[in-house]
Nucleic acid binder design. Structure first.
Lengths: 260, 260
DNA sequence: ACAAGTGATCCCACGATGTGGAAAAGCTTG
DNA sequence: CAAGCTTTTCCACATCGTGGGATCACTTGT
């Protein structure tokens, strides 16, 4: 059958479920609370369908509905499952390790996974309050994303680069060709760099946490300003990042999947 | 219509969605990875339906399927949305505050919300590695749960006490009557106590984080051993807990919902 | 090694379930 | 006060999901 696509080809069999889950993703880009017709507009569903699905999600605790405004927000079940997933992945162990890295380097340390076409920061540590660039970052314009693209897990490669590469600054790589070459360099050097490609005044190095098969299970980034994270200090930052990555490898991966 | 139930009476309109979301909840009590037939057994669905729904969830990133064993685990989208919900609720601000409480009291500090028939711990801080009693705790046998029951939010009250009150130790309150009286005491004193009712050798005090309408948005618990958390030191623990709760109230609640 | 058992995945006809247009009712805005 | 935009409910239609069963792959027992 359609093996080319990797695992799932036509995810037939649950239109309603797909649509309902799609509703949940609306809360990413838009504000924390959305009205029923907002949801309908953003998903392209009819108001009545969006409303019914939202209501079902409320019933299951995945959405909360404000009594006053009737708007929806993410519900307790989402927080609950997120917490569960967090612990099942052992991510509560990563916090202290990232703190250490952040304090040693005086920078911000972030640990991310890939979720569809995004890098998602799951744990962060910072010496200062943190600039908070967002939890969900593009793959092509961030160091985290490049790492995740350079060592994709099986089934992630095919998803490829999702459409056009949106430019954020004049340094953002927007040519697919150039990006592929960049990824070669990343694989070669073992780390990715983001020098103001997603925002001016931010420089980031990222390294992968690889499993035994050589796929990136996590990406670890150290983020600072170009003034602090200079070319000549880069090896020093990288050294600390690699130390942390190998510690995380031990903490987060089961022994039989750990890289040798 | 059936107004007695509060908001949603028969959550009609999305059987498939309800079932699919039900699958996700299977990962709570059972291990971190389940097979398709496990899911079918635990939800009472036919294998074929469970399989199809699980596949759809994989397609949406809510489940991950192991390439080798074909078993399922919670996927990146769950982690992602959990993280989003976490931040939208401002819970990343709570960590340092709980750390402070934990260090001041030498105990473990937990912040929880109610999710259906459970208290769910969303943020925790501990001086030692933490005993880890679980993320999802019963309402009737924990201090956190009693607080959430004593000051229920609108729409939570009706859900009431879910069926029989399971005994965990010989101190667990199993009589609904007694529990109701206990909740009166909790409201009167402004705090809840759990003296070995969910596990021997664990003593917990909890206080609510109330909103303007007098409903508990969060429950804050300080947990230690009966030797350290004695009756005579209780006021001291309580004082610290209340200080922390009021700090959290400022951090977590929007100004117009904060208790006066 | 063979047989029996268990689990994953696919197929298909039936009909229950979800769909969206329209309409009622409530709120906000100018 | 009316116009516009919500949220919410209703209903007939047919689409979409359902579960029994078949197939294939893999593990277990003797």
């Amino acid at each position: 059958m359609a093996e080319a696509a990797g695992v799932q080809s036509p995810p037939t069999g649950a239109q309603a479920v797909q649509r309902a889950l799609g509703l949940l993703h609306c809360f990413h880009d838009n504000g924390p609370d959305l009205s029923a017709s907002d949801l309908a507009r953003r998903t392209g569903l009819s108001v009545s369908t969006a409303h019914r699905l939202a209501r079902t999600l409320v019933g299951a605790g995945f959405l909360d509905q404000d009594e006053q405004t009737a708007r929806y927000r993410l519900g307790p079940a989402v927080a609950e499952l997120g917490q569960l997933s967090f612990h099942q992945r052992g991510l509560h162990l990563a916090g202290p390790e990232l703190d250490l890295l952040a304090r040693r380097t005086g920078a911000t340390a972030d640990l991310a996974i890939r979720s569809g076409p995004h890098a998602v920061i799951l744990v962060g540590a910072s010496v200062r309050p943190d600039t908070g660039l967002g939890l969900r970052r593009p793959l092509h314009s961030t160091a985290l994303g490049k790492v995740l693209l350079a060592w994709p897990r099986p089934g992630e490669a095919d998803a490829g680069l999702p459409g056009p590469l949106e430019p954020f600054t004049d340094r953002t790589i927007t040519e697919p060709e150039l990006l592929l070459r960049e990824l070669d360099l990343v694989r070669e050097s073992g780390h990715a760099l983001n020098d103001g490609e997603s925002a001016a005044g931010v420089r980031t190095v990222a390294v992968p946490v690889l499993d035994r098969s050589g796929h990136a299970r996590f990406a670890l980034a150290v983020r600072s300003t170009p003034e602090r994270l200079t070319d000549e200090r880069l090896p020093w930052f990288l050294g600390h990042a690699r130390t942390c990555a190998s510690a995380l490898s031990v903490l987060l991966l089961p022994p039989d999947q750990r890289a040798g």
